[in-house]
Computed example of a mutant assay.
Amino acid sequence: MARNTYGLDDRLTDYLRSLSLREPEILQQLRQETATHPMAQMQIAPEQGQFMALLVKLMNAKKTLEVGVFTGYSSLAVAIALPEDGQIIACDVSEEYTAIARRYWQKAGVSHKINLCIAPALETLDRLLAEGEGETFDFAFIDADKSNYSAYYDRAFALVRSGGLIAVDNVLWSGRVADPEVTDNRTQSIRDFNRKLHQDQNITLSLVPIADGLTLAVKN
């Protein structure tokens, strides 16, 4: 829920992107189209997409999972980084939003890498586990409804292999998690989730202050 890195002013954001961002034209086009969408705030920041693509390449990932697609920027960034035989299982409930994603996946020539599952994500994740897909994924990205973060994470943890990486978006929640006066359900869900992972000795953990906060959890 942050198209820019939280806490950086426009001047520093522009500087960061001018010297770091190597955004393929197709991703730039998607980002520009999404900027006109009524729910444009759901778009991840381009520096976050590039960072996740770097992580995917660094770990030589081939099989990945995404919970929450929206217009497809994160899945497109990851798909471009994957090898030709790489695969993303992408979970979303919106045919409308993902129609934009499908169009750009096709245009980028990566649609064969992405299996879009239009259904509640928990149903898809549970089905994958029931089909014996546990501990077969290299990477998972969670960016969906915050009340279900803990449940999504538990399934993703079971699906990724030892040494696999789970990335979780919006964990700083525009700073609201650190404001004790903010007590709405979504903010509290993220606070509880952050505390749960901090106490989990089965992962190697880092919360990276990029975009709206990105938690990285490596399964031990």
Rank of each mutant, 00 (worst) to 15 (best):
R3T: 13
N4W: 05
N4L: 11
G7W: 12
G7K: 12
R11Y: 06
L12F: 10
L12Y: 10
L12I: 15
D14E: 15
R17W: 11
R17C: 10
S18Y: 09
L21W: 00
R22L: 11
E25N: 04
E25K: 00
R31N: 10
Q41M: 15
G49S: 06
G49I: 00
F51W: 14
M52Y: 09
L54P: 07
L55Q: 08
L55K: 08
L58M: 13
L58C: 14
K62F: 05
T64D: 08
L65R: 11
E66Y: 00
E66A: 00
F70T: 04
G72C: 07
S74V: 01
S74K: 00
A81N: 09
P83R: 06
P83Y: 07
A90D: 15
A90P: 03
E95I: 02
E95A: 10
Y97V: 01
T98L: 11
R102H: 11
R103A: 15
V110F: 08
V110Y: 05
V110H: 06
S111H: 14
S111Y: 07
H112R: 12
K113L: 01
N115S: 15
A121P: 04
L122F: 02
L122D: 11
T124Q: 15
L125Q: 11
L128R: 08
E133K: 14
G134P: 05
E135H: 13
F137S: 04
D138H: 13
S147W: 02
Y152G: 02
A158R: 15
L159K: 12
S162L: 10
L165A: 12
L165N: 07
L165T: 10
V168M: 02
D169L: 04
N170D: 06
V171Q: 02
L172Q: 08
W173I: 05
W173R: 13
S174N: 14
R176K: 12
V177E: 00
E181Y: 11
N185Y: 03
R186D: 04
T187D: 00
S189D: 07
S189C: 13
D192Q: 11
D192S: 10
R195Y: 06
K196I: 12
L197F: 03
Q199V: 03
Q201V: 00
N202M: 09
T204V: 15
L205S: 01
V208P: 02
P209A: 06
G213C: 03
G213V: 04
T215F: 00
A217P: 05
K219C: 04
